[in-house]
């Protein structure tokens, strides 16, 4: 979440945060585990008319209507075609709950906050806006997603 990005200076007592990492189009991303509600297998989503391309539709999550966002489309990455093996990470932030469709869940990382660094300025890359921090684990660069930037705001989704 956003508070991850605000604490970029190393803290002495090494306060650790836990992140759930996953693959989207072969790239490593992660979100603060506190915003994750559950992880579930892919289900056929009912498409919504007149919705942005990255909204796959809605699924039934135990009686609630849950919008599903195709994260690779949202991040402008190569869209994964094989949806049956995809995984849905149900996250909630600012009272909104959304399912993020990713390729696979990889790991739970526990890192001291000092290990997170802010992303460099890359004005040409729109995807940067969705990334609040970067970190390196086992030589792999992992991007921390800014969930509040990713979720469409109420007036954006009517499109």
């Amino acid at each position: 979440m956003t508070d991850v990005s605000t604490t970029t200076e190393p803290t002495k007592d090494g306060k650790t945060i836990e992140l759930l990492s996953f693959l989207v189009s072969g790239q490593d991303y992660c979100v603060d585990i506190m915003s994750v509600r559950e992880i579930r297998g892919s289900a056929r989503a009912t498409p919504l008319p007149h919705s942005p391309a990255y909204i796959r539709g809605v699924i039934n999550l135990r009686g609630a209507v849950l919008p599903i966002m195709d994260l690779s489309a949202r991040l402008d990455l190569q869209s994964a075609t094989d949806t049956s093996r995809n995984v849905i990470i149900v996250v909630s932030t600012h009272d909104r709950t959304v399912g993020l469709m990713v390729d696979a869940v990889s790991d739970i990382l526990a890192l001291p906050e000092s290990k997170l660094q802010s992303p460099p300025e890359m004005p040409s890359d729109e995807g940067r806006a969705f990334i609040s921090a970067l970190t390196i684990v086992d030589d792999r660069m992992i991007r921390v997603l800014d969930l509040s930037a990713i979720l469409p705001t109420a007036n954006e989704d009517a499109a």
């Binding site: 007149h50 009686g63 609630a64 849950l66 919008p67 469409p152 109420a154 989704d157 009517a158």
Partner: peptide, 13 residues
Amino acid sequence: KGLHESYGRVPGI
């Protein structure tokens, strides 16, 4: 089931 709260208004729906 309301769609409005979880997603937003969808025209025609």
